[in-house]
Design a protein around this nucleic acid. Structure first.
Length: 536
DNA sequence: CACTCAGGGCCAGTA
DNA sequence: TACTGGCCCTGAGTG
């Protein structure tokens, strides 16, 4: 199917025409106006679960990846099967609802893609009947919906009998939205503990609606950097000025002392790669490896399987932003910082999904998985951002997960010292990595090396983590030596980038924490939860 | 082996 | 005449 032709319509190079990056970012508002969507949503708040995410009609079941109506199912099928190429006579942002869905097939198909309908679910051989490969996805979706129904029921019962206790940290948990798509403060647990495995009592989530859309995001979403600058944000909004030493040792402490933060910040050496690579390079083979690398290419292929399609991620994040904006009024637009946080949040969901789908990661206990993710989430975000810049970014621009690009000069001219520093440091690192000609396999290995960090406290299966790290490390070395025989130092150069990644990620975390203390960070997000977990 | 349910086909209605 | 959308058929997966 020649469907990818449609994708270039989604990401657009961002030219800051308005002079306000926040406004420019909201150009992505998309296929229906916020007011229209808000009106629609308000008119049927309790039914949203049974409404087609494309047009709002009644859903008839799972079709091509998600619950849609019969009409959009048929439309999507015909579009893909007949390789339709539509055009939009308007601005490619036509309203999409029950009465207007027929007006613009272009925008309708874009909306189908944006909400997550999968072209690959339309059978090329046109075979009838049977089940598709998304069965597990549908099952999980149903289970999540059931869980939510139970939680909502429980919440209603509780609310009728008692007053909810205020959270321990009112600043942290104080501003939940009523948006059903909002994330929960226990989202990581929800993602990591599938149905029937809940370690958190239902009461834990009383204040925290679950975001099923995000939990159900397709596997292996990748990233866009949370530390991407927010140049439209005024300096006087409380951004702190502090020096940005490239070494973690000189990293400024958060205003609230935190042992974990201290420990990480004071750690002079990078974690996983050096530990394992040292033993590996010294000839100490791990006593036992989970997966042999005797066939490194197939091992790397296995790691690559979880990597996600960038276009799909882009569409997903765009759809999420559109939903968020649609639930707001015209005078209640998301500011640039909020947009960036939303992007980072969606990306983080994707990274958690990516980790969960990793065959290596699945070998660990869920408790260990959570601890590892809580430890390395910001480094994964940074790595993911770097990969995106190296793959898609133009010189002098930052490539967002939505496909938009912002000129670095625009950012640095409007951002405060901290953000400017972060941007500069990150761009420097992008340049170094570009010079190293990293390929996707090497990026995937680096992500695994960051993920499998045996130095993380309270990991029970430390040995397993070490072994996996060593295995990935070996695969990375073999791959680098095989593909770049003329560059014997490439493997070492790759590992040397990880301390820089970590340093940047710590600065990102600190910046976000400062913004959190100012009340700027959206509380009901996975991002906030991860940040909270570290600073608690 | 009966049942489920998601993808495909059909065809009357519509623009 | 091309497109839409409701309805039905098909058949792999499930218990």
């Amino acid at each position: 199917m020649d469907i990818p032709d449609y994708y270039p319509q989604l990401p657009q190079t961002l030219v800051h025409q308005s002079g306000n990056i926040s406004e420019d970012l909201l150009v992505l508002e998309g296929s229906s106006t916020s007011q229209e969507q808000k009106t629609e949503a308000a008119s049927r708040p309790a039914e949203s679960e049974d409404r087609c995410p494309v047009c709002g009609d009644k859903v008839s079941g799972y079709h091509y990846g998600l619950l849609t109506c019969e009409s959009c199912k048929g439309f999507f099928k015909r579009s893909v099967q007949n390789n339709k190429h539509y055009t939009c006579s308007e601005q490619q942002s036509c309203p999409m609802n029950l009465s207007q869905r027929k007006r613009c097939p272009f925008c309708r198909f874009q909306k189908c893609l944006a909400v997550g309908m999968k072209t690959e679910a339309v059978r090329a051989d046109r075979m009838r009947g049977g089940r598709n490969k998304f069965g597990p996805l549908y099952r999980r979706d149903r289970q999540m919906k059931q869980n939510k129904a139970n939680t909502d029921l429980y919440r209603i019962k509780m609310e009728t009998t008692q007053t909810l206790q205020p959270p321990n940290d009112p600043q942290w948990i104080g501003s939940h939205t009523s948006d059903p798509s909002s994330s929960s403060a226990v989202q990581l647990s929800r993602i990591m503990y599938p149905a029937g495995m809940g370690h958190l009592s239902e009461s834990t989530s009383l204040d925290c609606p679950i975001n099923h859309h995000k939990v159900l995001a397709p596997p292996s979403m990748s990233y866009h950097g949370v530390y991407c600058p927010f140049p439209g944000y005024p300096r006087d909004k409380g951004e702190r000025e502090f020096s940005c030493s490239p070494t973690a040792t000189h990293y400024p402490m958060p205003s609230t002392p935190n042992p974990l933060f201290m420990q990480r910040s004071m750690s002079a050496s990078p974690h996983c790669p050096t530990t394992s690579s040292a033993s590996f390079l010294s000839g100490q083979a791990p006593t036992q490896t989970l997966i042999t690398t005797t066939s490194t290419p197939s091992f790397l292929n296995q790691l690559m399987e979880g990597e996600q399609d960038e276009a799909q991620l882009s569409a997903k994040v765009l759809a999420s932003l559109q939903r968020e904006q649609a639930n707001r009024g015209k005078h209640d637009r998301l500011n640039t910082f909020s947009i960036m946080c939303k992007m980072a949040d969606q990306t983080l969901f994707g990274l958690v999904e990516w980790a969960r789908n990793s065959s290596l990661f699945k070998e660990l206990k869920v408790e260990d998985q959570m601890v590892l993710l809580q430890s390395c989430w910001s480094e994964l975000l940074v790595l993911d951002h770097l990969c995106r810049q190296v793959t898609y970014g133009k010189d002098g621009c930052i490539y967002l997960v939505t496909g938009q690009q912002i000129e670095v000069s625009t950012i640095t001219s409007q951002a405060g010292a901290t953000l400017s520093s972060l941007v500069s440091r990150t761009q420097d690192l992008v340049s170094k990595i570009k010079a190293l000609h990293l390929d996707r396999q090497e990026f995937v290995c680096l992500k695994h090396l960051v993920l499998f960090n045996p130095d993380v406290k309270s990991v029970h299966g430390r040995r397993k983590v070490e072994q996996t790290q060593a295995t990935v490390n070996r695969a990375l070395m073999e791959h680098s030596q095989r593909n770049h025989p003329g560059r014997s130092d490439k493997f070492g150069q790759l590992l040397l980038r990880l301390p820089e990644v970590r340093s940047i990620s710590l600065q990102v975390e600190d910046y976000l924490y400062q913004r959190h203390l100012l009340g700027d960070l959206p509380c009901n997000s996975l991002l906030a939860e991860m940040l909270h977990a570290k600073h608690n």
